[in-house]
Amino acid sequence: MNITTRISRWRHSYPSFLLLIARIILGIILIVKGIFFISHAQQLKDMILASRFSGWVGILTAYVTFAHLFGGVFIIIGLFTRIAALLQIPVLLGALFFILPVHEVNDMGSDLILSLIVLGLLIYILKKGSGSISMEDYLKHHLL
């Protein structure tokens, strides 16, 4: 039996576990970026000021920071997962289309790759939901 067959069998046997791992990884990345934005608020403001949305710098700085922090927590625990993912997608699209292209190619290599990975995970979570290993599923089966 080759490795792709083994992975395929394992993936079909444990889909909720894989979704949980994806949620945890995505949530940790979002929380770390939110903490980074809090500790480097001026850098975030400068990036927004250099974009097309310079008039919204205060609102966007707060939205990006808190969306990452609270969205990351909600995605990890699996509560309001689709809403949290949906609120992150505009931030990532804004970063990909308006913020990152303003910077030089040397500066944006790792940020571009991380943004693409996070956007892909957000779309995956948005499509799949929170899964059976989540607070939503627990509440649905035990409290409702």
Rank of each mutant, 00 (worst) to 15 (best):
G109I: 14
L86F: 15
S39C: 01
A41S: 05
G71I: 03
H40C: 00
S54H: 13
I29S: 08
D107K: 09
A95V: 06
L69C: 04
A95H: 08
V64M: 08
I21T: 13
L30D: 03
I113W: 10
R6D: 05
I38S: 06
Q88L: 10
I25N: 06
I35R: 00
N2F: 10
L114K: 06
L114R: 04
I117Q: 04
I3H: 10
F74Y: 13
P101G: 10
I113G: 01
W10H: 06
F97D: 07
H68W: 04
V118N: 05
G58F: 03
S39Q: 12
F66H: 00
V73S: 03
I21A: 15
I77C: 10
G72D: 11
V57R: 04
V32E: 06
I83C: 02
I35Q: 00
A62M: 07
I48L: 11
S39M: 08
L87K: 03
R11V: 02
H40F: 00
R11P: 00
D46A: 12
T4I: 13
F98W: 08
I76N: 11
H103Q: 14
I3D: 10
L119Y: 08
I29D: 05
A22Q: 05
I48Q: 04
Q88H: 03
L93H: 02
S39T: 02
I28L: 15
L87H: 06
F80R: 05
H12E: 15
L92A: 09
P101H: 08
L60I: 11
I59R: 02
F70S: 07
F37Y: 11
L114S: 11
P101Y: 09
T5F: 05
G78Q: 06
A84D: 11
G34D: 00
P90F: 08
S8E: 15
T81V: 05
I24S: 09
V91T: 14
F17G: 13
I59S: 10
I31W: 02
T4G: 00
F98H: 09
F70N: 02
E104G: 14
N106I: 12
L44R: 01
I38H: 02
L60T: 04
L116D: 08
W10N: 07
L30G: 02
I117R: 02
L121C: 13
L93F: 10
K33N: 12
L60Q: 10
R9C: 00
T61A: 12
L96C: 03
I24N: 09
I3M: 13
Q42D: 14
I24F: 07
L114E: 15
L69E: 12
S13W: 01
G94P: 07
L119Q: 07
L79S: 09
K33P: 00
I77R: 07
R52T: 06
V118M: 11
L30N: 04
L92T: 08
I21H: 01
F98Y: 11
V105T: 12
R23Q: 09
I89R: 03
F17W: 05
Y63A: 14
T81G: 12
L26W: 01
L112M: 15
S13K: 15
A85T: 07
S39A: 04
A84V: 06
L121E: 12
V105M: 14
T81R: 03
P90N: 09
L114F: 11
I28W: 05
K33L: 13
G71L: 10
L26C: 15
I31R: 04
M108Q: 15
I89P: 12
I25G: 12
M108L: 14
G27C: 05
V118R: 01
E104P: 00
I113K: 10
G27A: 08
L79I: 07
L93I: 15
